[in-house]
């Protein structure tokens, strides 16, 4: 379904339309949350919370505003803000003193959830940890661009930044990931 069809559906029938929004955007939003949190447990919590907040907000929107909504970018923005606030309200995690910063974000899993193929692969799991360890501005830019597959302009809109800043953050983020991925593969 084209994005415009989905938003028009929302404007017509919010409840039925929103079910379709969750169906359509659940995997990509979960991937985004996974990239930001680094583990599937927190990722599910963030993704679900994003939809709950989105639904509450949409209930107050006029049909016209609903029809004009850029859903993918809008949902990403909610998820990004949620993670920023979670980090702020949480005590900082223990960082190791020997410089092994990438390891410190490996949050032990609290339950063996129904993980799909992707997480079972060590490369992606490790990458999720690396992405989560990036400075927030680079992490958000990389994820929205490469994982959420938004254009630079859309990422800029979702994060309230200039397009040039987004380009530079994506570039620097990818560079840092490459450097750390190389370092990790050397030590392991």
């Amino acid at each position: 379904m084209a994005p415009e069809e989905l938003t028009q559906w929302l404007a017509r029938d919010l409840d039925a339309g929103f079910e379709e929004v969750v169906r359509t955007h659940q995997h990509r939003l979960f991937a985004l949350a996974l990239g930001m949190c680094g583990n599937p447990h927190d990722a599910e919590e963030v993704a679900q919370d994003t939809f709950v907040r989105a639904y509450r907000a949409l209930k107050r929107y006029s049909p016209q505003r609903l029809a004009e909504l850029k859903l993918a970018a809008w949902l990403s923005r909610i998820a990004v803000n949620l993670v920023r606030n979670r980090v702020r309200s949480r005590r900082p995690e223990l960082t190791l003193l020997d410089g092994a910063e990438a390891e410190s974000v490996e949050v032990p899993e609290r339950r063996a959830g129904p993980e799909r193929t992707v997480l079972a692969r060590a490369g992606v799991r490790r990458l999720a940890g690396l992405v989560a360890a990036l400075p927030p501005a680079q992490r958000e830019a990389v994820l929205l661009h490469s994982v959420q597959q938004l254009t630079y302009a859309e990422v800029a809109g979702a994060l309230s930044l200039s397009e040039a800043t987004v380009r530079s953050n994506v570039h620097r983020g990818l560079q840092a990931l490459r450097a750390r991925a190389g370092w990790l593969s050397e030590v392991s």
Partner: peptide, 29 residues
Amino acid sequence: NMVEEALHELSAAQAPDGFLERTLRACGL
């Protein structure tokens, strides 16, 4: 390279089973 490949795989991650129903219930739908 390895990073782009892994990012691509990350973007193909699937929400866990039952995520849709749990989310709709949390939304009151």
